[in-house]
Amino acid sequence: MRQIKRWMGTVGLAALTVVSAWAAAGKMMSVQVKDAQMRDKPSFIGKVVGSLAYGDRVEVQESQGAWARVSLPGGTAGWLHTSALTSQKIALSAGKDDAKVGASGDELALAGKGFNSDIEAQFKKTHKAIDFTWVDKMEKIKIPSLEIQTFLKDGGVVPKGGAQ
């Protein structure tokens, strides 16, 4: 009897985990980073099979750990780390209807509103001594996946898990 109870408890826990999975299959989600790469497996060592842009709506096909296999409606499917995704819709162009929803709406985020490039420009006007040249330079440094793989291998760094 105790065995059965324990077994039932495990099943119950498993069911709960499935139900509460954040990136559940069939769910529509939005890309919340500037650009994201879809890969052919749930790992950063996977081959890039497609790119997604900020605000893109994707459907979650399946999830595995912190990764979700997503697809654009009628488009390519691929794996994306869930930190690139949000449940919110992201409205890319501000229109008159936005006022009804409000920028603090929990279901909708308005792209380009709030602290944005206009505010940065205002800040730069009044703080001329603060130079953004190096910030722009830093942002351009993007290490390709292949270089990261070589770096790990050459240094004898053997990953034990995680997002890879």
Partner: peptide, 23 residues
């Protein structure tokens, strides 16, 4: 940047809006 961007991939938040950059 190679070291830092490698590490970021193993963090709980590998993807941010503009990515990780080091100086």
């Amino acid at each position: 940047n190679v070291l830092g961007q490698t590490l970021a991939q193993f963090s709980d938040k590998p993807e941010t809006f503009g990515g990780y950059h080091f100086l």
